[in-house]
Design a protein around this nucleic acid. Sequence first.
DNA 1: GCCAACGTTGGC
DNA 2: GCCAACGTTGGC
Length: 154
Amino acid sequence: MRYWLMKSEPGDVSIDNLAEMPNQTVAWYGVRNYQARNFMRNQMSIDDGVMFYHSNCKQPGITGIAKVSALAYPDATQFNPKNKYFDPKATQEQPRWFNVDVQLVKKIVLIPLDELRKHPELTAMRTLQRGNRLSITPLDPSEWNFITKRLVKN
DNA sequence: GCCAACGTTGGC
DNA sequence: GCCAACGTTGGC
């Protein structure tokens, strides 16, 4: 069992969008970074814990708890020429990009980025490091526990 | 909308 | 396989 922080732009898929999806589940499509892809493809398991993070928006921060509900499978958007995530180098036989499914566990009161930065327990968090741009990063169990026990207020 | 940081591309 | 140019990310 592992823990992850996964960023989404609310203008793309917000926590409220997720809550309205069938089964409150979304395919984590559009990841076009090999490191992030590898996390999904090689390391994620069913029921891994996910912090749903809003990025590139007015109030960046953790906005929900979710979980991995399907193992990685080829990202459908790579095959669709009309999709902005289309990848001409990907084929059905040799897909390049994969995604897991993520299911909402619960929405929470937003934990803002600057709040996360205040806690010494979280200073090692990958997302908080200068220059980090990875949209999917592992969370240490101690970080997960600190956030869920100390910072989450339903 | 700016821009620093980082990843990818492609010519050589 | 180097590296300059370019594109993207994401906080501010």
